[in-house]
Nucleic acid binder design. Structure first.
Lengths: 249, 249
DNA sequence: GTTGATTTGAACAAAAATAATCAAAAATAA
DNA sequence: TTATTTTTGATTATTTTTGTTCAAATCAAC
């Protein structure tokens, strides 16, 4: 099997599977990994595939910026919460989305809506890049760990906008102490978003209810609507409602 | 069996099987490998088959479909340019990077440097997210096609910063008309970056030299240093230098 | 950050294929 | 028939391709 034949097989495989790795191709082509790598280099130079570490992928797939959406905890709950939250969004809305993982789960449910999303979350931008949503990215310092934008410039940027709804997440919430966070940056940004939105929706799975983190940054009254999952204790739900929170689950 | 007969059989076999090798044909034609090779050379010269190492194949199968997407063209040149440009960057620098594909090739060469990168390019952010570089993302409207940030907010954002160096790309450059672009947004952003930088580096492969696009947006004097590839015509290089451009290749 | 595992690219060596050379065989011409 | 040209096959040198090894780069997990 010569280069031309291998090349055809590689292109075909990449096109079919979307992504391949080197050992896989070496096995398929009955050749060494080094040869596969050399082939991939040539094909990539011709722009026919996109070279990745360990293999290759379709060029068009590589175009979308791959920001990882981490945190596999409570995915089912988060999806349920996000789906419920998406029902609140109307066509034509301008919404804020913060960089919380629960908020990010909104993406699949809003990608066909005709709305404008203003966010500081890179994964959200990535997920909505190929959608009908108009995107606006908040600028400022990049927080690599959280894959989000923070800092004073971000605050100033937000102050220039106004949204119909803000969808935010927190690290902790309690009746006694209100909203709390693990980082000052997130807290600051959450506050900025809430200030510029007509209606503030807090997306929060029930495991975070009545937990406190080290930084208390806002009273419960910042939130207009609290959307959580069905695991919430009904008595606790009542207590929140009596405290004036519009609670949905 | 003479050449005419062998030729018929070879063409037929190639057409049937798609690809053949020399020993296989030698066996089929009851002749030596040397003769087969001589036949193949003639047929290939006539354009009837595609000659490969070890045999031959159908012409249409060997036809590479190089509708090379813009970002994959001249990759080798772009990398060489980017590598040279990276040498200009010192530790501690604050640099601007625009959303051009040549500029994006800087990423691999700067990921270890201790610098701050301010950019409107999502691919650049993505590539440098796991690096030692401090990142600052320019905010504003997301241009989904170019995977970059544009708009008036982006301009305002840039105006608040200053960088030691700006690395920019253009769609066209000529001595007569200066810098030109295909889109107003890119042009606007490039200008904004250049205005806020101490030193402006234009990264531009030689195929773009002396070409004009529809929107002329700046004179050559905007650029301090032009970095291009070694394919540049030496006479042309002299002309640019006489025009006061610091040209590197 | 630092470590450890993978992946990669460069250098080298081996194998395969090719081109060049030349002599023998075959075809052609005188 | 003999001389000349063409074609063919064998030999050898060169080029191309491939595989192995190893240091460096990169990624991922801590």
């Amino acid at each position: 099997m010569n280069f031309q034949q291998r090349k055809q097989l590689i292109l075909q495989t990449v096109d079919e599977k979307g992504a391949v790795d080197v050992p896989e191709l070496a096995e398929l082509l009955q050749t060494s990994a080094m040869t596969v790598r050399r082939d991939l280099v040539q094909l990539a130079a011709a722009g026919l595939i996109y070279r990745t570490h360990g293999g290759a992928m379709r060029v068009r797939d590589a175009m979308v910026v791959p920001f990882a959406n981490k945190s596999a905890m409570n995915v089912a709950h988060k999806e349920a919460i996000a789906q419920r939250a998406a029902q609140e969004i109307l066509d034509g809305d301008v919404i804020f989305m913060d960089c919380g993982s629960t908020v990010a789960h909104l993406c699949p449910f809003i990608r066909h809506k005709r709305i404008t999303v203003i966010t500081n979350s890179l994964p959200v931008i990535s997920e909505l890049l190929n959608s009908s949503v108009t995107l606006n990215l908040i600028g400022g310092e990049v927080d690599k760990e959280r894959q989000a934008i923070h800092g004073s410039m971000a605050g100033e940027h937000i102050a220039r906008y106004h949204a119909d709804r803000a969808f935010i997440g927190v690290d902790g919430i309690s009746l006694a102490n209100g909203l709390s966070a693990n980082g000052e940056q997130e807290a600051q940004l959450t506050l900025a978003l809430a200030r510029q939105a007509s209606r503030v929706y807090l997306l929060c799975d029930s495991s975070k209810l009545e937990t406190d983190k080290y930084l208390f940054f806002a009273p419960l009254s910042l939130v207009d609507v609290l959307i959580t999952d069905a695991q919430i204790n009904p008595d606790l739900a009542d207590t929140y409602r009596q405290a004036g929170i519009d609670l949905i689950y």
